[in-house]
Write a protein that binds this DNA or RNA. Structure first.
Lengths: 174, 174
DNA sequence: ATAAACTTTCAAATAATTCTGAAAATTCAG
DNA sequence: CTGAATTTTCAGAATTATTTGAAAGTTTAT
């Protein structure tokens, strides 16, 4: 079955919105992002309000949030008073930006907490103490490995990264 | 500063819970998971209710959800009528299980939608049509690459996987 | 079969999040 | 400056998500 652009766009926006809620992002923010991803030209706040049937305040706040995340940019046109907004369309760049921000907001906050928690006072023979310290260590090790891998991804060029993964995954157990 | 076990445990549970909400998981579910992660022995529903000050219904529903996710198992003791629960403590296994489930619940649902959306009717010269189809294609390509990488991770053994990543990231631009 | 022990369900209550829209603030052309 | 155009703010409303707890359901020992 073949769709018209308007219907396909609506579908994409709805799905991207639903998807977003699984990632701690609110539905509207994800929908605005989706709308900008598939719009050829920058849109004004009014365009966004109309196309998604949302209020001015809501549009404003969520656009600001998208700008904070580095996923959307302001665009100004000569002679136009209004601000317009556009989204980065290269998905590899989008993914890297999201990884970068989430790492900053989550992993970088979690690591010091784990360090703190690894100094627990108590009898090493107590199995509850042992389980606690072992689990925290385990998480700490995992997290700092993830930290390194993510840092590399953030800096990586798409082709280099994907090329390496292909090499890695096609070579079986080498 | 050195903490007592009880305090450290409370801190860990609180942080893991806060963390979870960024991942589309509700706070209580993440807290129960945290509690089980640092408990040496399996806990009963009552233990969970008491230690987290939550109701029976809440404990029951969230434990079931954790079981659905494959992160928690029921444990029965001979002669005991009550059910007990325990969590997998190896974080690499936990991460793989989460990847597996999220892939099933998200990526596997998204891919067919993207396929559907890639058949848009319309003038190829229309830049809105072009932007739409290009963006969808871009996302599709990215998603199916991610799909392959995640499948490999799900099957991978920790040492093989980490070993390869280290090789990949220490070799610079080879 | 009975009943105690335990688990599950789910309607209603509560809490958390998101959204609205009008007012305040800002910007800028004239 | 002035005031029209535009953006930002935020208290209250609306919506959505989570939690409670009592009743219903299930299991098992006797």
């Amino acid at each position: 079955m073949v769709m018209q652009l308007a219907e396909a766009k609506a579908q994409f926006i709805a799905n991207w919105g639903r998807f977003g809620t699984n990632w701690g992002i609110n539905r509207t923010m994800a929908q605005i992002h989706a709308l900008l991803l598939v719009s050829a030209d920058p849109l004004s706040a009014e365009d966004v309000m109309e196309q998604l049937s949302i209020s001015r305040g809501n549009a404003n706040m969520n656009i600001r949030e998208l700008i904070d995340w580095g996923l959307v940019q302001k665009v100004l046109f000569a002679g136009e008073r209004k601000e317009f907004f556009t989204a980065e369309k290269d998905i590899w760049k989008v993914a890297r930006q999201i990884i970068k921000e989430r790492k900053k907001r989550e992993l970088d906050l979690m690591l010091p907490v784990l360090d703190e928690l690894s100094h627990v006072e108590g009898d090493k023979k107590d199995k509850n103490v042992k389980t606690f310290t072992d689990t925290i260590q385990n998480i700490r090790k995992f997290s700092s490995q993830a930290d390194k891998v993510l840092d590399t991804m953030i800096k990586a060029d798409e082709h280099w990264f994907i090329g390496n993964l292909v090499k890695m995954f096609s070579g079986k157990k080498d």
